[in-house]
Nucleic acid binder design. Structure first.
Length: 262
DNA sequence: ATGGTAGCTGCGCTA
């Protein structure tokens, strides 16, 4: 791992239900005092978002929630400004987008559709969603210099991000059209921050519950923090913290993040 | 080709 969580961290964490993971998230934030945390799969509507658990630590929160599925949120030391809750022009009841500005940093928190299986209806939705994301990000990149686009991308970028690339090649999370869509996002002027640094091999951010994949580290790196070129000389580290994945009743995802020099 | 586990919900859907 290059670096570790700290006060300069901007963090993405798919918590797979904030109701179940509330104490884990609160304790993690108490330990590291990160600047911004973007959550995915909170699975609660806004009226039962447990913001008070984090506001009692001195943090601000904002939820873009949904019952049962999806749902994204920010927990941040400074309040978010210029919030965006949707992909413009993409009418979608699914709550997957939350963007906010923290000082001079634009942070875009995403829960990219999973896609279920290549060729399925949900896969087509995923690719369409990513195409609309691209068009909106192009505008966001024009409006803002320092941008972090982070979240559960449900795409593993390269072979080294997959425990068994030959088994996964062409499958959901690792198909060519998904790679093309991610490539188009990077072409807007973004880096996969994790690869700005030398990293230990076999570092992943998600391990399937069903195959008990964590025990053998059979994972994928699908949780990403993309950083704009203007941030290159401020990005000090990019890391995955697998400690919370070892907890009792963990999320299937680990928190990932970038440390950005103020 | 399928199933395994987990969460939410109310036993099927999503991941």
């Amino acid at each position: 791992m290059s670096g570790k969580p700290g006060r300069n961290s901007v963090v993405s964490w798919n918590v797979n239900s904030i109701r179940v993971r509330e104490a884990q998230v609160r304790e993690w934030i108490e330990q590291y005092q990160p600047a911004v945390v973007g959550l995915q799969e909170t699975k609660v509507p806004n009226d039962v978002w447990p913001g008070e658990a984090f506001e009692s630590l001195g943090y601000h929160t904002v939820s873009n929630g949904q019952r049962t599925y999806n749902g994204v949120a920010f927990i941040s030391r400074e309040p978010a400004e210029d919030l965006v809750f949707d992909l413009p022009g993409f009418d979608d009841p699914q709550r997957r987008v939350l963007a906010g500005t923290f000082g001079d940093l634009r942070v875009i928190n995403l829960y990219v559709p999973n896609g279920q299986a290549v060729g399925s209806e949900k896969y087509e939705y995923k690719l369409s969603w990513l195409a609309h994301l691209h068009d909106w990000l192009k505008e966001e990149m024009a409006r803002h210099d320092k941008v972090v686009v982070m979240g559960d991308f449900n795409i593993a970028p390269k072979d080294e991000d997959v425990h068994d690339p030959e088994a996964w090649r062409g499958k959901i999370l690792f198909s060519e059209p998904e790679h093309a869509a991610l490539g188009k996002l990077l072409d807007l002027g973004l880096d996969d921050s994790f690869r700005l640094f030398d990293q230990e091999p076999e570092q992943f951010s998600w391990w399937d519950f069903r195959t008990r994949a964590f025990r053998r580290n059979r994972g994928l790196r699908i949780d990403l923090a993309l950083t704009s070129h203007a941030l290159r000389n401020q990005v000090e580290a990019s890391w995955i913290d697998i400690e919370p994945r070892k907890a009792e009743r963990p999320s299937d995802h680990a928190p990932v993040g970038v440390n950005i020099e103020p």
